[in-house]
Design a protein around this nucleic acid. Sequence first.
DNA 1: AATGAATGAGGGTTCATTCAT
DNA 2: AATGAATGAACCCTCATTCAT
Lengths: 199, 199, 199, 199
Amino acid sequence: MQIKKDEVRLKIIEKAENEFLEKGFLGASLRKIVKDAGTSIGNFYNYFANKEELFKSLVEEEYINFISFITSHEKLESYSYLGDIRDTTDLLKFFPSILDELLPNISDSFVLLVEGSKGTIFENVREEIISMLNEHIMEHIQSDSQGDLYSLTPLISEQLLDGIILILKRYEDNEIRKRLLTAHIMFYFNGFVGLMGNN
Amino acid sequence: MQIKKDEVRLKIIEKAENEFLEKGFLGASLRKIVKDAGTSIGNFYNYFANKEELFKSLVEEEYINFISFITSHEKLESYSYLGDIRDTTDLLKFFPSILDELLPNISDSFVLLVEGSKGTIFENVREEIISMLNEHIMEHIQSDSQGDLYSLTPLISEQLLDGIILILKRYEDNEIRKRLLTAHIMFYFNGFVGLMGNN
Amino acid sequence: MQIKKDEVRLKIIEKAENEFLEKGFLGASLRKIVKDAGTSIGNFYNYFANKEELFKSLVEEEYINFISFITSHEKLESYSYLGDIRDTTDLLKFFPSILDELLPNISDSFVLLVEGSKGTIFENVREEIISMLNEHIMEHIQSDSQGDLYSLTPLISEQLLDGIILILKRYEDNEIRKRLLTAHIMFYFNGFVGLMGNN
Amino acid sequence: MQIKKDEVRLKIIEKAENEFLEKGFLGASLRKIVKDAGTSIGNFYNYFANKEELFKSLVEEEYINFISFITSHEKLESYSYLGDIRDTTDLLKFFPSILDELLPNISDSFVLLVEGSKGTIFENVREEIISMLNEHIMEHIQSDSQGDLYSLTPLISEQLLDGIILILKRYEDNEIRKRLLTAHIMFYFNGFVGLMGNN
DNA sequence: AATGAATGAGGGTTCATTCAT
DNA sequence: AATGAATGAACCCTCATTCAT
C-alpha cells in the first residue's frame, strides 16, 4: 500500500527478515533490527505494535497465500491423475506447472514462517503444513495398504517440507529454485516408488 | 553422598536436554533448567563450570563417537562394492550391518549436537557432517559426471542428515530407528538412482 | 530533553567517580552507582555501553592529556638546566611554571586513573608513569653513578607519583595543590641531594 | 601454637596472604584461596570462622606488635635527642637501631594490614598509623612554627608510611629492607630539613 | 514521524556461608 | 578433619516495551 512512501517501514522489515532468519523470533534482537535499519527503538513502535506484529507483517501474507494455495488445490488433486501415474516422465511435466503457480507466492519469508516462528502465533505452522502434506500423500497410497509406508509418510512429509525450505534457503534465483524443487519432488517420488516396489 | 550428587547431576542433565532441544543452546534458560531439576541456580555451578560445559557434557561423547565412526569407515567404504551396486536388494542387506554398528553410538543427543549447538564450539558440526557426507556421495557419482547431480548433492547430503535427525527425534525405540533409518537411506538411494536414470 | 539527558549522565558520572575512587573499578557496584544517581540499572545502559566505558569516560581525557604533556616535555627537559641545579632556590622558581601548565590538565580523575584502574585497559598506567619518571631521574644522576641511588630511584619514582596522588586526593583547591606539589617536589629534590651528599 | 601440627591451616594462611595482597580483603575469593591451598571450601570453616577471621589471623599479631612497638617508643622518643639533631650523620646511626627492633615485627602482612584491610575491622589502621606518625613529627617541629610545614606534615606522614609499605612490597630480603628503610627515612629527614631551611 | 530516556524482568555467573554426611 | 551440596544475594548486562518530548 504505502509501498514507496514508507521507506522506514520497509527498511525495518528488510533488516528484520535477516535477523529473524538468523536467530529466529525469540533470539532476534529488536535493538539490532532498528539499528541496522537506521532508525530508533522508539520510532519502531510508530510502525509496529510490537515484535510479534513485525514478524506477522513479514510472514502473514505468505501464510495466507500458502494456505489458500493448498486449499484451492485440495479438491483438484484428489481426482487428479497423480494417483495413477507411475511414470516419472509425466510427472516431470506436471510439477513445473504447479511450481509456476506456487513459486511467486513462496519466498524467503516462507522459510521464516516454517523455521523461525517459534514464540509466535505461527509456531504450529510447520506441523500444520506437514500434516497437510501427510494427508495428501496418504490418499495416494491408500490402495496399496503397505504397513511400512504408513509409518514412513510422516517422515517423508517432514522431509519434503524441509527440502523445500532448504532449497529456498540456499538459492535465491527463481529459475534455479524451480529446477531444484522439481528435482527435489521427483527425488521423493522416485524414492517413494522404489519403496513401494521393494516392500 | 555420591548417590545424592549423581541424582542431582543426572536430573540437571535430563532437564537440560529437554530445554536445549526445545530452545537451542542460546535460547535455553539455565534458571529454568535448574528449577525443573529441583535445585538452585547457585548449586548448578557445583556441578558444571558453566552453561557450555553442561552442553558439552550432553554432547561431547556423542561427537567423539561419531567422528571416530566416520573416520574408521572412510577407507572401508572407498573400496566397498557400494559404488557398483545398482540393485537395491543388496543394499538392503548392507545398510543394516552399518547401522547396527552406528546406532549404539548415535543417540538423542546427536540431535542436540546437530541442531542445538549454535553458540557453542560445536556450532559447525552440522556443516562438517554435511560436507563429509557430500564427499562420500561425490565419490560414487564421479564417473557419471552429470552436471545436475553435482548441484544436487549438497542438498541431498543436507537432507540425508536432516532425515536421520528427524527419525531420531520422532522415534525412541532402537529397532524402529534401525528400520526407519534403513528405509530412509534406501529412499535416498532410490531417488538417487532415479535421478541418474532420468537425467 | 537534551538537558534532562545530560543531567542524568552527569549524575551517573559524579556518583561513579565516588564509587570507583572508594572501591576501585572491580570493586565498584554499578547498582550502587545508578541508585546513588537516582536512576535504574536498565537506564544506565542508555548512557554507557558498559562498566568499563563509564570508567573510560571518567579517565580517558585525563590520560590523553597526561601522556601528551609528558611527551611534549621529554625533549625539553633533556637539555634543561635541571641537571646542573643544586641550588634549591632556582628550582622553586622552575617548578611552579611547569605545574601551572600541568595542573589544569591534572584533576581528580588522575587519581582514579592511577589507583583505581585495575581490571581496565588502564591498569598499567601506574607502572608506565613510574617507569617514565624513573627514566627522567636516571638521566640526572647518571654522572654520579652511585650504586645505592640506582636501587633507590624506582622507589623514589613510585613515591613521587604517590605523593602527587596524595595531594590531589587530600586537597581540592588548585592554588593549594600547586603550593603543595611544589613543596612535594622540592622535598624530593632535597632528599635526593642529601642522599647524594651522604653517600 | 599448633605451628607445625596444622599444615592445612598454614597452607590456607599462606595462600590467603597472596590473594589478599593481590585483591584486598573484599576482592579476594575464598574459593580461590582454598583451592590454592589444596583443601575444600567446607574444610576451611573448620579452621576459620569466616573470611574476616582468616584475615585477622594474618594480620592481628602484626597489628598488636606494631601498636605495642609504637606505644613503647612514644615516651622514649619524646625526650630523645632526635628533636635536636640536624646532623644527618648521627641519624644514620640512630635509625638502624630502631629498625633492628622494628623489622622482625614488621613483615609482609603489615602491607596487608595497611593496604588490604578495607571491609574489615582494621580498615582504619592506615589512618591511625598516619595520625600517630603525624603527632610524632608535629612534636619535633613545634618550636619552629612554620605554617607551611604544618600543612605538609599530614602528607609527609602518609608518604612516610607509603614508602615503608612500598619497600616491604618490593623487597623481601631483610638486610635490603633495612638499608632501604634507613635511606627512605633519611630521605624524608633531609627533605624535611631542606624545607625548613628554605621556608 | 522521530528520539531516546526509563523501567523491570531476566540472562549467565560468582560469592560467602551453612549443613548434612 | 574433611567433603562438597545447597542456598540466596549480588554481580554485569540485554531485553522488549512505554512514554514524554
